[in-house]
C-alpha cells in the first residue's frame, strides 16, 4: 500500500521521532558517558570533557569476572528463549483454538502465576530447589522459566487475531494437526514470536531476585547479580556500574535490531484474508 506523504508531514514525523528519541535515550547516554570516565566525580564538567577511557570495561573483565557472568547469562538466556519460542507457541495455540472449560482453567493458571508477588513465592521456591537438589545449579536458572506466562498470553492474543480460515483450509486439504501447527500457523505468528523472543530474552537477561536467591556460587553468577555486587556499601561506584550496565544492554540491543524486522515484516500483504 502506498500513501503519499507531503513534505510537511515528513518533516513533522522526523521532528517528532527525534524529540522522542532524545527523551528516551538521554539517561542511557549519560550511563554510557559515565562508563567512559576515569576515576573521579561525575559532575557536568567532567561529562562534557572529551577525556575517554576504556579502563572501567577492562577492570570488569580482569578483576570482577564479567566474562564468566556474560557466558552464564548468554547460556541461560539462549536455552530459555529457545524453549519459550516452542513451548509458549504450543500452549498459546491450544489456548486460542481449543475452547473448553479445562482450557479456561489452564489459562487462569497461566495468569495466576503472574499475579502473585514474587516475595511470597520465593521461600517455597527456595525450599523446593534445595530439596530437589536443584539449588545452585543451572537447572534453577532455567527450568522454571521455560514457559513464560506473559509469552503464552502474548502469542495467544496474536493467534486469536488471525482468522482461522487458513487452518481450516489446510485441514480440508488433509494436513495433520502438527503440520498445520508448525507449517501454517507458526510462520503466521512470526511477529508475535519475535516480540516473545525479545521480551523473554530481556526479562531473563535482567532477572535478579531469583538467580540471586536460588544460586550462590561464583561459577553460576549471572550478569544482574554481578552488577548488584558492584554496588558498594555506602557509595556507588558509578563508573564501573555504568560500564557493566552498558555491557548488559548491548547484546539485547543487537538482538533487538536483528529481530525488529521480523516483528514488522512477518506477514506479506494479503496473506491474511477473510
Amino acid at each position: 500500500m502506498v500513501r503519499r506523504s507531503s513534505p510537511l508531514s515528513v518533516t513533522l514525523r522526523y521532528a517528532a521521532s527525534i524529540i522522542i528519541l532524545g527523551i528516551m535515550i538521554f539517561p542511557l547516554l549519560w550511563m554510557f558517558r559515565v562508563s567512559l570516565l576515569g576515576p573521579g566525580g561525575i559532575g557536568f564538567e567532567r561529562l562534557a570533557s572529551t577525556a575517554i577511557t576504556l579502563g572501567n570495561y577492562a577492570d570488569l573483565f580482569t578483576s570482577s569476572g564479567m566474562g564468566r557472568y556474560l557466558v552464564n547469562s548468554s547460556l541461560v538466556a539462549a536455552v530459555v528463549v529457545g524453549g519459550n519460542i516452542l513451548f509458549c507457541f504450543m500452549v498459546a495455540y491450544t489456548l486460542a483454538r481449543y475452547r473448553s472449560l479445562s482450557n479456561k482453567l489452564l489459562f487462569i493458571s497461566v495468569i495466576l502465576v503472574l499475579m502473585i508477588p514474587v516475595h511470597i513465592v520465593i521461600i517455597p521456591m527456595y525450599v523446593l530447589m534445595v530439596r530437589t537438589g536443584m539449588y545452585d545449579t543451572y537447572f534453577a536458572l532455567i527450568l522454571p522459566w521455560l514457559v513464560n506466562p506473559i509469552g503464552v498470553f502474548l502469542v495467544k492474543q496474536y493467534i486469536e487475531s488471525i482468522p482461522p480460515s487458513m487452518e481450516e483450509a489446510a485441514r480440508i486439504d488433509g494436513a495433520g494437526e502438527f503440520r498445520i501447527l508448525f507449517q501454517v500457523v507458526m510462520p503466521l505468528c512470526k511477529p508475535a514470536l519475535a516480540v516473545l523472543a525479545i521480551q523473554v530474552f530481556f526479562t531473563n537477561w535482567n532477572a535478579f531476585l531469583f538467580p540471586f536467591i536460588l544460586t550462590s556460587s561464583d561459577e553460576l553468577r549471572t550478569l544482574p547479580v554481578g552488577l548488584a555486587l558492584l554496588q558498594g556499601h555506602q557509595a556507588i561506584d558509578w563508573q564501573h556500574l555504568m560500564a557493566g550496565s552498558s555491557i548488559a544492554v548491548l547484546p539485547v540491543l543487537i538482538l533487538f535490531a536483528f529481530l525488529q524486522r521480523q516483528v514488522v515484516s512477518g506477514i506479506t500483504a494479503g496473506a491474511v484474508k477473510q
Binding site: F208, F212, S217, V225, A228, Q231
Partner: peptide, 8 residues
C-alpha cells in the same frame, strides 16, 4: 566463600 549483595 559466598558473596551477598548489600541491597538484598
Amino acid at each position: 566463600l559466598r558473596d551477598l549483595t548489600w541491597a538484598n
